[in-house]
Design a protein around this nucleic acid. Structure first.
Length: 373
DNA sequence: TCAACTAACACGTTTGAACGGC
DNA sequence: AGCCGTTCAAACGTGTTAGTTG
């Protein structure tokens, strides 16, 4: 609430004025805000680092276009989200959470062995957050070993009562990890939020696998799918499936996407941008995530430059009253492009510092969080 | 007609209780 | 009594497939 002190990740107490609260998406995404200025402020808050475990596996899927099955009763992710943390205060309590963020404003379809934009995205389902079962725990605990979100499940059932993450099929998402300094689940909303995401974790939610390459990769790596490996009862069906080369497919996707978008919706930015740099379009989906906190984009390291925030200067964004559909159409939907981040030697998370200073109602958007309480 | 979705299925993995040995 | 390792059955998770839905 306004007027209440909030703890920084470093444990220092900051005056409310240091947490600029503004629920206006236009303000949060103000192109005129110097990034370096934001970054400087963020680094003062602490130096929490997050690393994606099994990053190579994620990349393997990312190269061909990760698909995640969603079912009525909930399906685990594979690869599952697993991270490691450093830079936390050993004795301070933290809560770790994950939510899923739409990559763009499109619904996709699998046509002729490639993903194409089908239509505008459906209205976003109830946004839920998965709370790591160890939460809250001290920083020393979180840094002791990697954190697994193995048991997090995805569902397409908007009436789900089990607290699973609700997603739309044929839409693209990426997991976003929140590190919140808080002594208990009840005080989470008063803590500072630091958010991380990884470009290679973008996936398309599906009710049935579309790309046979994804199926094969899952069978090869997921122990639960061992029964379907070569020599199994069903593996023959995979071998019949024709495949196009990655490069050709990527070009086809790009071409089809641009073709579809052309016709008044495609901006010059979309034409200029290489698809590999447009995976992460978080800055273009402000309407998707209406928390009342200042959103600061801070690149974690130079190695992650390809994952930098969008250059707003190239975007002809109106100052306010942004029509979600129009905004989203300004962003070229990436046909799961090969990520340039594969060149990075480290897999440190793309780091946003959300110095959260909001009221409890903001968190009421997280049913799972309520369940935990 | 067709793409998307659902539920049943077979198979392998995981989990945890029960047990025995030290 | 407590700890450790093994066994085994039940529960769980997986992709496939045929049928259903819109």
């Amino acid at each position: 609430p306004e007027g209440t002190d909030a703890a920084s990740p470093t444990g220092s107490r900051l005056r409310p004025s240091e947490f600029v609260v503004n629920s206006s998406s236009a303000s949060r995404l103000n192109p005129s805000l110097p990034l370096s200025q934001s970054a400087a402020h963020s680094y003062q808050q602490g130096c929490i680092r997050m690393t994606l475990e099994n990053a190579e596996l994620w990349k393997s899927f990312h190269r061909i276009g990760t698909e995640m099955i969603i079912t009525k009763h909930g399906r685990r992710m594979f690869p599952h989200c697993s991270i490691s943390l450093s830079g936390l205060q050993p004795l301070a309590n933290y809560v770790i959470m994950v939510d899923m963020v739409p990559v763009d404003g499109f619904k996709y379809k699998w046509k002729k062995e490639q993903w194409e934009v089908a239509e505008k995205a459906e209205p976003q389902p109830p946004r839920r957050t998965y709370l790591h079962p160890d939460s809250p725990a001290v920083g020393a605990h979180w840094m002791k070993k990697s954190l697994s979100f193995l048991k997090m499940k995805l569902t397409n059932n908007t009436l789900d009562q089990h607290g699973h993450i609700i997603l739309h099929s044929m839409h693209r998402y990426y997991p976003r990890f929140h590190v919140i300094q808080a002594d208990s689940l009840y005080t989470v909303c008063w803590g500072a939020v630091q958010t991380f995401s990884f470009p290679e974790t973008v996936f398309t939610a599906v009710t049935a696998y579309q790309n046979p390459k994804v199926t094969k990769l899952k069978i090869d790596h997921n122990p639960f799918a061992k029964g379907f490996r070569e020599g199994g009862t069903h593996s023959h069906s995979l071998q019949r499936m024709p495949c196009t080369s990655q490069s050709v497919q990527a070009e086809q996707n790009k071409a089809s996407t641009l073709k579809l978008l052309n016709g008044g919706h495609l901006s010059s930015w979309a034409l200029e941008q290489d698809s590999s740099e447009s995976i992460h379009s978080e800055p273009l989906e402000p309407q998707e995530y209406d928390y009342s906190y200042e959103e600061q984009m801070v690149p974690a390291s130079a190695a992650y430059q390809p994952y930098r925030s969008v250059e707003y200067g190239k975007l002809p964004l109106p100052s306010s009253d942004v029509d979600p559909a129009q905004t989203l159409f300004r962003s070229p939907p990436p046909p799961h492009p090969p990520s340039t981040t594969e060149q990075a030697t480290q897999h440190q998370g793309y780091y946003h510092s959300h110095h959260h200073h909001s009221n409890a109602s903001d968190w009421s958007q997280h049913p799972l969080f309520c369940y935990s309480c």
